[in-house]
Amino acid sequence: MLKELDWGKVVIYTALLLFALIYIMPIYMTIITALKHPANISLATAWQPPGDINWGSFAEAYKKLGPNFMNSVYLTVSATIISAIIGSLNGYVFSKWKFPGNEIVFTLVLFGMFIPYQIILIPLFRVLRQLGLYGGIPGLALAHIVYGIPITSLIFRNFYARIPESMIESAQMDGAGFFGIYRRIMLPLSIPGFVVVIIWQFTQIWNEFLWGITLTGHSANPITVGLAQLAGGQAVNWNLPMAGSLLAALPVLLIYIFMGRYFIKGLLAGSVKG
């Protein structure tokens, strides 16, 4: 029995380490490339650690990405919070205030997730201009909020579905209305749901490029646009974009490292009943 257990553990740890190695490989390559001098970067020696470390890439990338970085922070924080609030209200209505045609309407909303983003660029641009929102962060935030409605509503609806109807009913007996139930019952139980939605939306919005470059003016460009500038042009010093990618990914990486535990808890809480 003991022997068998050990053998099982060996298999588990070997498998885990092997997977971990594969998962880390790309980031290792990114870091060592970022630390090399441009002239030392070539495919033939890509795996070798840099002989002479070049921190300059990070300083230069930081200098160039600075303004875009703050734009992305404003954009991502505001759009993520608003879309989480909207998603939670929608999820609440779809799961607890069913109306005739509820399922069909929900399905239609969900379908919005599958619209190809490239093709709606022209109408989206026109609508935002008519609203006077073209060029700045608010317009871009609006686009992300609108196209975030399907997924945030889905996550919250699944999440709230597990809250028993009896709790709602007894709150209604006590005289609580729509907002009363939301505030007293749904919201306190929603924290893990918010974590999942915030992680998801934050990642998506932070990393989005095409809208960022089309819908904002130069001064409001988010960080992905700045990153593309680093890698742009005809001749490329690869250390710079690699350093830039690491800097650009840092905030999201931190969120994953610190909120990863809650992410799983949130998924757990939201998915006991599909």
């Binding site: 998962y23 790309p26 390559m29 890509a46 990393n207 690699m242 990914a249 994953y256 490292i257």
Partner: peptide, 21 residues
């Protein structure tokens, strides 16, 4: 868990560039 989850935090542009290498 963090090691397996972190790739999700990167943008496709970043992962695409790294994996092309």
């Amino acid at each position: 868990r963090t090691i397996f989850l972190y790739p999700m935090s990167l943008s496709f542009i970043v992962t695409g560039t790294i994996w092309r290498w």
